[in-house]
């Protein structure tokens, strides 16, 4: 994949996620993809990705408002802003009453043979915690 290919694919993934088009959002996730995401730890493959989606859809409504990619070689980094609506209480957090916050999300990807080999999410809940 060229750097331009990676930018195009990453755009597709964020756009598809906003439309809950999970077939397209996960098209570049293989069964071997390693996923690291804060509250859920390390997961693997499409099954892991399904777990991430299920967790966030259960507790939140979310939409990516903006994103920008930096790509060098086979690696990418994306800074996104997500609008999060807190719908169902997460254990250890205050009661969900539909609170809304815009939070930054960092996504680092390593690409191989047209697929994500590894993807790491860093989600800043600082502003979300202030909102709830």
């Amino acid at each position: 994949m060229t750097e331009e290919d990676i930018v195009a694919v990453a755009d597709i993934m964020f756009t598809a996620a906003n439309h809950r088009d999970w077939d397209n959002a996960l098209r570049y996730v293989s069964h071997e993809t390693v996923i690291n995401i804060g509250p859920l730890g390390e997961l693997r493959g499409k099954t892991g990705a399904d777990g991430v989606i299920a967790y966030f859809e259960r507790h939140y409504d979310f939409k990516f408002l903006s994103w920008q990619h930096t790509v060098e070689g086979c690696e990418s980094a994306t800074l996104a802003t997500a609008r999060l609506t807190y719908l169902e209480t997460v254990h250890g957090l205050p009661e969900a009453t539909g609170q809304v916050a815009e939070i930054p999300v960092a996504v680092f990807g390593t690409w191989r043979d047209g697929y994500l080999e590894r993807v790491r999410f860093i989600i800043s809940f600082v502003d979300f915690m202030s909102a709830v």
Binding site: T70, V71, E72, S76, A77
Partner: peptide, 13 residues
């Protein structure tokens, strides 16, 4: 750390 650089922008993990 690991930096990625593209033009006048960079991201660092």
């Amino acid at each position: 750390y690991h930096p990625l650089v593209s033009g006048d922008r960079a991201a660092v993990e």
